[in-house]
Structures are given as structure tokens and as C-alpha cells.
Design a binder for these strands. Structure first.
Ligand SMILES: [Mn+2]
Ligand SMILES: [Mn+2]
Ligand SMILES: [Mn+2]
Ligand SMILES: [Mn+2]
Lengths: 146, 146
DNA sequence: ATGGAAGTTTAGCATTGGCTAAACCTATTG
DNA sequence: CAATAGGTTTAGCCAATGCTAAACTTCCAT
């Protein structure tokens, strides 16, 4: 066994966290899209790509390309020049996103964070909390939020 | 003004959260790399690319390519077939990462989360907490952690 | 001293998620 | 009912982050 000998035991375990992060990242964008589309449908009756682009702060063309991927994943349906619809799976993901989002944002507020910051931080944190952490946040919220 | 009229007022404000998320994501990988390299140097005296790859759970070639970018950003220095060093900026970023990471992980533990989950969730959350939220977590920690 | 096993880099590919500019529809309005 | 403003898509570009297979170094053991 020439050169340095590695223990390599702990490393595999340690890498689990980073693997989860990479998995989270690959679903994150989809979650934000479907949640946003659900909001638009509820608020305005329809979801237009340009409105999605505006709220996300990206170019129209970016949204078009991403929606094509979401369509391939079976989360949305659309026809050219028409508004966007969610599939059953799309609605399910949107509802789950809303649930997580609400817990995380409510938790941050209960912790004493300002509304502005809670809104911004929760948008990122929501994608990286396990169910266990979510439960703990909900518990804290129930106890505190009389 | 044909077709639908957009209000376009609230959208720009709302998009700020998503812009921050995208910014967070682009610094996230660099933060994890330098923190990991700092840990390896402290633990083993040197940081080898293959060890970084193992702990992150990615291929060696991926680490080589990423380290090249980090070198261009002035965070690490390296020579072919040799171990990796951090620049001053690299150490600064690593220290700041450790600080945040410790607060977030400690906070989750104080909230009653299991060690395993706290370790995993904090690895993702750490990159999406503002200083305001970090302060609130530290406060909670100080109050609770007798 | 040196052969070769093991560690490291290079080459080449794929996907995601951004962008701008140009082409293309749609629907309001005159 | 037709022109056209304005919303939408296409085309083509780029950077980041992953992978595998092949080439290349290093350094230990003989
Ligand atoms: Mn959300
Ligand atoms: Mn989000
Ligand atoms: Mn960290
Ligand atoms: Mn991390």
C-alpha cells in the first residue's frame, strides 16, 4: 500500500450531509416555481410566465426553459402563449412547499426576527429542513404562539 | 396598452428574496470547500484533494476543477500533485463559515433536534441565514444553554 | 535505483440555470 | 376587421458543477 493510507471510514458517513444538500438543491427550484404558480392561480386566477419571471427576478427566457423541464417532470402543463397549469403532482408539491414555508417563516417570526428578514431567510431555509426539524419548529411555534 | 395590464409594483420587491437565494447559492460551494480544507489542515496537517472529494462525496475530477476556480478567486493556492493551502482570504472565509455553522448547529441541538439531523440540516441552513437570524439564534442559545 | 500501485490530473461529455437579441403570436383598439 | 403594441418563444451563448475514462506523477518496496 504505497503512499498515504486513508482511514476512509468516517468520510463516507460525513459525505451524507453534502449528498443531501446537492439533492435539496436540485429540487429547490422546482419547489419555488410550483409554489409561485399556485399562488398566482389563487391570487389572480391564472399564472403567466412573465409574472413568474418578474416575481423571481429572472428573464422571461429563463422561465420558458425551466417550465419545459418542469413539464417533462410532470409538474406543470402548458401550451404556447397560454397560461400555466399545475398537474396533480404539481399541486401536491406546491401544497407541501407552502406547509414547510409557513412553518419556517412562522418560526423565525416567533423567534423575534423582523418580517422582512423572516420572509427572505425562510425562502432559502425551507428547502434544507428535515421533517424532524420541521416538527421541532412547529412545536416551538405551538408552545410560544399562545 | 393591449392585453393584460400588470401592476408590477410588488413584484420587484418580492423578487429580492429569490435574488438573495441565487447569490447564496453561488458562494455556498466555496464556503463548504474552504471550511473543509481548514478542517483537514487542522486535523491531519494537510488537505489532499482526494480527501476533500471523499468527504464531499464527489469525484476527484470534480474537486480538481472546483479548486481551480477557488484558486482564481484567490481563496486557495496549490501546485500539481501537492496538497492544498488556504490564502488569507480563504482562512477568513473558513473562520466565518465555522462561526455560522457552529451557531446554527448549536441552535438546532438546543431546539431538541438529534445530533445526526442537526449535523445534516445545519450543513444546508448555514448558507441561508442572515446576520439578524444568526444573532437571534445566538441569543436563544445563550439564554437556553445555561 | 527503479517498477509499479496508488494518487492526481486531463479530456471530453452532460445538465442546469442564467443571459440577450431576434422572431413570433395575440388581442386591443381604432 | 386589420394594424400593431406588447407579451411570448426561439436561438445561441456562457458558467458552474457533476461524471467516466485515460493519461500522468509520485513514492514505497524491492
Ligand atoms: Mn417556498
Ligand atoms: Mn424557496
Ligand atoms: Mn459549513
Ligand atoms: Mn454547508
Amino acid at each position: 500500500m504505497p503512499q498515504r493510507a486513508k482511514k476512509a471510514g468516517t468520510a463516507k458517513i460525513r459525505s451524507a450531509a453534502f449528498r443531501r444538500i446537492r439533492a435539496d438543491h436540485s429540487s429547490e427550484l422546482a419547489e419555488d416555481y410550483v409554489e409561485l404558480i399556485a399562488d398566482l392561480i389563487d391570487e389572480k386566477g391564472e399564472a403567466r410566465g412573465s409574472e413568474v419571471a418578474m416575481r423571481l427576478g429572472v428573464a422571461n427566457a429563463t422561465v420558458v426553459k425551466t417550465l419545459k423541464r418542469l413539464q417533462d417532470s410532470g409538474l406543470v402543463t402548458q401550451e404556447p402563449y397560454r397560461s400555466i397549469f399545475l398537474t396533480g403532482d404539481g399541486w401536491k408539491m406546491a401544497e407541501d412547499g407552502r406547509r414547510k414555508h409557513k412553518i419556517v417563516e412562522g418560526f423565525l417570526l416567533a423567534l423575534g426576527i423582523s418580517e422582512e428578514t423572516a420572509r427572505i431567510d425562510s425562502e432559502g431555509i425551507e428547502h434544507h429542513v428535515s421533517e424532524e426539524t420541521l416538527r421541532a419548529m412547529a412545536r416551538f411555534l405551538a408552545r410560544k404562539g399562545s
